[in-house]
Design a protein around this nucleic acid. Structure first.
Length: 223
DNA sequence: AACCAGGAGACAT
DNA sequence: ATGTCTCATGGT
């Protein structure tokens, strides 16, 4: 079982995913911050609150104070931190000339710039780069790490950058990497939500072949 | 009623 | 360089 094989099997079994679940690129940016260590179900509530309050826009966020923003995004957890993070991200968004200005910059440049923001780490930055700006970066998250390690492809303790390069290099020769990376990460998430929780829920998993939960992985406490 | 969820940063070792 | 703690609400 290789990375390519996992992608092929997930793709043929689940079909197209149509990610990210958002109406606009800006909404992707907001969702990427809100979903940090938080279930998407909770993020949806926060997003809906922002929509109902009619402030799910760059100006809307920028003009609402910390107190009000925090109250609206409360259901997604860490609301104090995330309110600050959203404000910093929106400030960054304007400073970089919104979508038009952003699309004139290179992926490397944008990545460095996003990572320099307090509260935007590698995964959040890559979510934004791939799903909001349509740049060919491979998003590594807890699910990716978990699935790949359960299939013995990695040990699970690798650094974020190392895994990102590994996955990007795997498809270096591919023609449409943006849509491939988009689909692959979406497939990983929707598959993992069903079958690859921390406690195994493997009944009915279409990728049974080679999965070794709790054996020689970073999840195992007795290895 | 612990445990987990589509992380990141500060701080100690 | 590698651990540990904090941030916080909601679902199981």
């Amino acid at each position: 079982m290789s990375i390519v094989t996992i992608y092929q099997q997930l793709a043929s079994h689940y079909g197209k995913q149509q990610w990210w679940p958002a109406d606009t690129p800006f909404e992707v940016m907001i969702g990427a911050v809100l979903t940090q260590n938080t279930s998407w179900n909770s993020v949806e509530k926060a997003i809906n609150n922002l929509k109902d309050a009619k402030i799910l826009s760059p100006n809307g966020i920028a003009q609402s104070d910390h107190q009000k923003l925090g109250e609206l995004i409360r259901p997604s957890g860490y609301f104090n931190q995330k309110a600050e993070r959203l404000h910093r991200l929106v400030k960054w968004y304007f400073e970089h000339g919104e979508m038009d200005g952003i699309q004139q910059r290179s992926t490397i440049e944008l990545r460095e710039s996003l990572l320099s923001l307090n509260g935007i780490g590698p995964e959040t930055a890559d979510d934004i780069l791939l799903y909001a700006f349509e740049r060919p970066v491979f998003v590594i998250d807890a699910y990716t790490r978990r699935i790949f390690s359960r299939y013995g492809l990695i040990n699970g303790k690798e650094k974020y950058e190392q895994l990102r390069i590994l996955c990007e290099d795997t498809f270096a020769a591919h023609d449409h990497r943006v849509s491939l990376f988009n689909e692959f990460h979406a497939l990983i998430v929707s598959h993992a939500k069903m079958f690859c929780k921390t406690k195994p829920v493997c009944s009915g998993c279409p990728l049974i072949d080679g999965c070794q939960y709790g054996k020689n992985t970073y999840e195992s406490k007795t290895d």
